[in-house]
Amino acid sequence: MNLSISEIKRQAKLSLKGKWGLGVLLTFVLFLLNFLLPTLVEMMMCGGPAEWIKQEDTSPGGSFVSTLITIALIPFTVGVYWFYLSLVRLKNPEISYAFSIYKDGKTSFKMIGVSILQGLFVFLWSLLLFIPGIIKSIAYSQTYYLLRDHPEYSVLEAITESRRRMNGYKWKYFLLGLSFIGWGILCLFTLGIGFLWLVPYVSTAMAAFYNEIIDIQDKDIEY
C-alpha cells in the first residue's frame, strides 16, 4: 500500500484544525523548558548574565546542573510525542497530557533510558560514517510512539521493533522530513517565531506517519 507524503501532511493539518493554539503553546513551553531553563540556571550559577557572558567556558557546576535538567526533561519531550499522537487519533489532548508521563516514575526512568540508549546507538553508528548514523536514527524514530502503544516493551524491544517497523519506510520518512525544509528556511526570516507553528505541523505529521505505517502493517498481518 502506497504511503503518500501529501496525504500524511493533509492528515496533520486536519488534526491541527482548531488545535493550532495548543500546538503553539506547547512548542513555546518546550522551548522554555528545554532551552531557556538550562541557560538561566547556568547564568544564576555564574553570578548573573553579565558574569555568564564574560565566561569563555561554562563552569563545571553549571554544566552539571544543566545536564541534569536536560535529562529530567526527557520524559516531557516524549510526552510531547504522545500528545501529537493523541491529537492525530482525535482524542483532544490538553497541554497537561504531555506532563502526565511524570505520574509514573517507572515510565519516566524508562523514557530516559531509551533516549540515552538510542543516542548511544546512533553515536556509535555515526563513528563509522555519517550516513549510517542518519539511517539508524530514522530506523529508531518510532520507538517513543511504540512505547506509548506497548508500554510492556522493554527499552531494547521497543528500539528493535522500531527498526523492524521502519523496514521499507526509511526513505519515505526521510522525504517527509525533507519536505519541511522550505518552511524551516522561511521561519528563519521571522526571527524564529514561525517555528511556533512549524514545530506542531512537523510533529503532527510525524505522528500521522507512525499511525499510518502501524495501520498498514497491522492490516497486512490480518490478511
Rank of each mutant, 00 (worst) to 15 (best):
W52Y: 15
I135W: 07
K110W: 04
L127K: 04
K106V: 14
L68E: 03
T58Q: 07
K103D: 12
I116C: 02
Y140G: 00
V114A: 00
F83D: 11
K106R: 15
K110E: 02
L124Q: 05
S137N: 12
W52V: 06
L85C: 11
Q142H: 05
L124W: 02
S141N: 08
W125N: 11
P75D: 03
S137F: 04
I53Q: 13
I138Y: 13
D57H: 10
S115L: 03
M111Y: 13
F123D: 02
N92F: 04
N92E: 15
S100C: 07
F83G: 08
S115N: 12
L146F: 07
T107G: 01
V122C: 09
T143N: 09
Q55A: 13
S141C: 09
V88Q: 13
P60F: 02
L117H: 00
E56I: 08
Y140S: 00
G79D: 05
T77R: 11
I138L: 15
I74P: 00
S100A: 15
Y81C: 10
L85Y: 12
I131G: 09
G113K: 12
S86E: 14
P49C: 01
E51L: 08
S100R: 15
L73E: 03
Y81Q: 14
A98P: 11
Y145A: 05
F130G: 13
F123K: 11
G105K: 14
V80E: 08
L124F: 07
T70G: 06
L128W: 03
P93H: 08
W82D: 01
I69R: 07
M111E: 03
Q142I: 01
Y140I: 03
L124P: 06
L85A: 09
S115E: 07
I131H: 11
G105H: 06
I95T: 13
P93G: 06
K106M: 14
G61S: 06
L128S: 11
V114K: 00
T143Y: 09
I131R: 13
K54Q: 14
L90Q: 15
K110M: 03
T143E: 04
K54F: 05
V80Y: 09
L146I: 09
V80K: 12
S66R: 09
L87R: 10
I138E: 06
E94T: 12
E94M: 08
T67P: 02
W125C: 15
E94V: 10
V65H: 09
I134Q: 08
F83P: 14
W125S: 13
S137H: 05
T70P: 02
G79V: 04
L85G: 15
F76P: 01
S126Y: 01
E94K: 14
I71W: 00
S141E: 10
G113D: 02
F64H: 12
E51K: 12
K106W: 09
K110S: 06
S141K: 12
Y84Q: 12
S66I: 10
L127T: 08
P132K: 04
Y84R: 11
A98G: 09
G61Y: 02
K103M: 10
K54D: 09
S100T: 13
D57A: 11
Y144I: 05
I131K: 13
I112E: 00
W125T: 06
L146D: 00
S63C: 03
Y97G: 01
S126M: 06
T70N: 07
L68Y: 02
L90M: 12
I116H: 00
L87N: 08
Y81A: 07
I71P: 00
A50I: 10
P75N: 02
Q55Y: 01
